[in-house]
Design a protein around this nucleic acid. Structure first.
Lengths: 337, 337
DNA sequence: TATGCATATGTAACCGGTTACATAAAGGAG
DNA sequence: CTCCTTTATGTAACCGGTTACATATGCATA
């Protein structure tokens, strides 16, 4: 069943049926009604793939994230979904699991799919393959929007948070609480948030004339397991830190996992501040101080930005950056008892 | 740039180029190498949409869930993604937000997209529109797999958990702990898990000769807000329950939200058991007893089942049901102190 | 040497829409 | 009454692949 079949039933041409379906061009009202009736009767749904081929527009937006199971990203996606559906776009979802090869693989697939646009939180800000591919996309007319992580030397548009400033304030809170031995479990040094949050940490310590200690700066990967191990190492140092700054929500959970297993109490044995809230902990009023932001809104913003580019047919980025607001919410875990 | 352009460059026909790309039919190795070189040089990626139109197969699988921000579903999706990518399928994601109209809207879109298959957690088990649409899909050769929620009178294949039995055990734990005044905050009565978990609750009380009290059975919607309100109402009853059974993870969070705000302590002021774990609470060893299962695995199973149907070209369901294992993990919140 | 099969490649129709262009009728202006 | 514009509809090419069918060659077998 296709538009030609419908056309035959009604006794018009396929062009007329197409016009009715798309409400384009001139169609006599009487004809229109007959066509609509035939479509209704045949329970006909036009083939979006054929339409895409013809119009060179898939009405699908690719969304590439590093970890859907991370509540930050699932909230972001949830926000994006609402805007997308209101604008008749589908979301084609890819989860890289922070793996570069998989990111490349997805970008390859995305290219074949002739997606209308792409929203991506890249694994690394230094990955040339990804960068070149994204720039290529924009050159081909497929706009790109970055979420949360930038790409070096690219001036791609994106929606971010002021990582360095936010981390600075988080660390500052620890300093104000009296800490001098403050450690950080970083994110990957290849990702912008990883790097910038570390930058904020260092800036805070320097501003307060606290010496940077190499062994207090340990590298994580934004995942629970490694953060858990790093915490263990930190607390087993001859001169362990009295406070830890965790670079994202998964990192916070890794720290908490170790503390919990060792029956160490936050605020007594160790203090901490984390980046990104953890909703269920907020609900039970678990006193973890975190830097918070509206993830869902970040999703809205990103999708809205992409659709804006799409509707203005401006595929090229111009280094536009939206920064969503953040808040340092102190709940006591930064204190020393 | 298309296969005809490549063909021209090499001096062969488009059919040969197509054969090289798809590794189908006979192609002399020498020719093959020349074609591959031309593809490489032109940085050519074949148009998947044209391919889809021609083969009537989009290599995309629609996934419709009621709430991605719920960690159960984000884990399920994460599991599905891994299997999908290994089998060269894309995931087209739709989040209904538990809204029927939106579900219908998505199913309509899905139909136009000519998806290869569909995995859905329907909002309601009674929705005729959804049911008919899904059956229609299978009749058209698009296999369907249900996740977590069944559809009445449909014999669609799916991956579920033994809701009634699991809920029974959860409630039984409360009874063993000495409770007699046990309330339940249900899920929607129109969803299978909602209904069956209530069934399990009732069965447990009956088996232990505990009278069912109307006012202890309050209806929720699997969301935090309503569960919060229901908890408030329950605890303000003249004769309040001493324990609550929460029908899903969001419901548990709603209960906890109220308890926390009122500074009520679990195990002292009220006891509870919830359905579905909450990972971050487990990490901090928050002593909430829950019925647990491997959500990611449920995602694997569902996607594997769909791909199995796809590869056997059997679009029709045969009422095949996989049940993932569950565990009642008691951590103390079921006790009375 | 004739026959048959495997190998290799090309031709062209087809998938199901969209749309530029052609054609024609109707209505309004001069 | 002629000319122009607006309305209405059809024809056919096009989007970029796939693939049935036709054709041709090489080589083995009888």
């Amino acid at each position: 069943m296709n538009i030609r079949d419908i056309a035959k039933k009604v006794g018009v041409s396929s062009a007329t049926v197409s016009r009715v379906i798309n409400q384009s061009g001139y169609v006599k009202d009487e004809t229109k009604q007959k066509v609509l009736a035939a479509i209704e009767e045949a329970d006909f749904v036009p083939n979006a793939i054929a339409r895409s081929l013809s119009t060179r527009d898939s009405s699908s937006i690719g969304v590439i994230v590093p970890d859907i199971a991370n509540e930050f990203f699932s909230s972001v996606i949830s926000g994006m979904g609402e805007i997308a559906v209101n604008n008749q776009y589908n979301i084609v979802l890819f989860d890289t699991g922070e793996m570069q090869e998989r990111e490349h693989q997805y970008l390859q697939m995305a290219e074949g799919q002739r997606l209308s646009g792409l929203i991506i939180t890249p694994v690394s800000e230094l990955d040339m393959v990804t960068r070149d591919k994204l720039i290529q996309f924009e050159n081909k007319g497929i706009p790109v929007v970055l979420v949360d992580r930038n790409i070096k030397n690219s001036n791609l548009d994106g929606v971010f948070v002021e990582n360095a400033a936010a981390a600075y304030k988080g660390v500052e809170a620890l300093i104000h609480a009296g800490h001098r031995k403050i450690a950080i479990i970083t994110g990957p040094s290849t990702s912008m948030p990883g790097k910038d949050r570390l930058k904020g940490y260092k800036a805070a310590l320097m501003d307060y004339r606290i010496e940077l200690k190499e062994e207090y700066i340990v590298s994580g990967d934004f995942k629970i397991i490694k953060a858990y191990e790093r915490t263990k190492e930190l607390l087993q140092l001859p001169d362990p830190p009295t406070a830890i700054f965790a670079s994202n929500n998964q990192t916070s959970l890794g720290v908490l996992k170790y503390l919990t297993e060792q029956k160490l109490k936050m605020g007594r044995d160790i203090s901490m501040v984390g980046f990104d809230q953890i909703e269920s902990l907020k609900i039970i009023d678990y006193r973890l101080s975190t830097i918070e932001r509206d993830a869902k809104k970040q999703g809205y913003e990103a999708m809205a930005m992409l659709i804006d580019k799409l509707s203005h047919k401006e595929s090229k980025s111009s280094g536009r950056k939206i920064f969503v607001p953040y808040q340092v919410v102190l709940r006591g875990s930064e204190l020393i008892k």
